[in-house]
Design a protein around this nucleic acid. Structure first.
Lengths: 188, 188
DNA sequence: TTCATAACTAAGCGGTCGTTTAGAAATTAA
DNA sequence: TTAATTTCTAAACGACCGCTTAGTTATGAA
């Protein structure tokens, strides 16, 4: 009854994600996206509504890519060690996606911190809360002697350390990154 | 022989710095700067040459504001404890400047990580190297038993932790921030 | 084969970007 | 007071921004 789309949405979203990941939101124009995605501006707007709408789909895509990592952490039974593995996994996912610009979520979190886009900021906070909750869950495993306050403290510490790790992965050497992770978990 | 400037450069640079600090480089337009600084676009360009030129002056200004912090760390004799004080001082300087958007240098570092502006990127790396060298100097003080490699490891760890701290100071509570610093220095 | 439907191309919308220019206003040595 | 010099205001430059529209092309049920 009507013409077919000449592109697969999942595919072009992934291409857009890489461009956003590399340049950030503000410094990625719809013209750049058009070229990278290989489709016309009209198609972008008819499929995703707006630049922000496309970006939200990219965040969803990233979340899906990262979900295996989350599931692995969720199912792990070895507490703190599982969180450390999660740190290493988060580095690996960037490499696998052929991207060397840190963590997409952390970058987005930083870029939007002072902007007025409450939708994207909400997504970021939800993402962070999710990770923090998982950290708390794992920390409780090998910590029968620790009180709740200590555990929350440690979870926060790990969350912020992961922020430092995300920044590090953009510039530092593999050795420096690994050393940082080892140092982070030494005291736990 | 000629007309006088109706503004003091140091004053308008400080105003510009606050705006850049709040919004980042890309999301701060020359029109916004014009309003914030209280001078015309022509004056901005005749005093600073370009938006980038003005931004570099803002970085200089920030550096000057932070120099007291650096001098204090440089002159301290209590090693690791001095670095911890430096962490707390770095939070205080943001508060004193009435700014609640983390560390200007860290934000700039993040924003320019994947851009092609080698001048500003160079400034950032120099800044980071300077801090790292100071950390190494202080770590050596109470560490006659530590080898060089361990010290460099610890300095890197602290540099990246400071990155996490900068992100934290944009969102987290004062208690969470203090807890993070204490956790960071626990293992040293 | 017809024809309603949806996706395509490409031009263009008003607005903002960083930067420049033309000309009026102020300064001060001569 | 004149005249050279510099800063001021305000308008405008071409380029790009996110987004829309007009018109063509492909699809497939009737």
């Amino acid at each position: 009854m009507a013409r077919k789309k000449e592109y697969i949405e999942e595919e072009v979203i992934e291409k857009a994600m890489h461009l956003f990941w590399r340049n950030g939101y503000s410094d990625t124009s719809v013209r750049m996206l058009e070229k990278e995605m290989g489709i016309n501006q009209f198609s972008i707007y008819s499929s995703f509504g707006s630049k922000q709408g496309l970006f939200l789909e990219c965040l969803k895509c990233y979340k899906a890519k990262a979900s295996q990592m989350f599931i692995k952490l969720k199912n792990a039974t070895n507490g703190v060690e599982a969180i450390k593995d999660f740190f290493y996994d988060s580095l690996r996912i960037s490499e696998e996606l052929g991207n060397h610009n840190g963590c997409f979520v952390t970058n987005t979190y930083n870029e939007f911190a002072e902007k007025e886009d409450e939708i994207i900021k909400g997504q970021m906070l939800a993402f962070m809360d999710q990770i923090k909750a998982l950290f708390i869950e794992k920390l409780k495993m090998n910590a029968s002697h620790k009180d709740e306050e200590t555990i929350v403290k440690q979870a926060n510490y790990l969350l912020l350390a992961k922020h430092g790790l995300a920044a590090a992965s953009r510039v530092n050497t593999e050795k420096e990154i690994n050393d940082f992770i080892e140092m982070t978990f030494k005291g736990l």
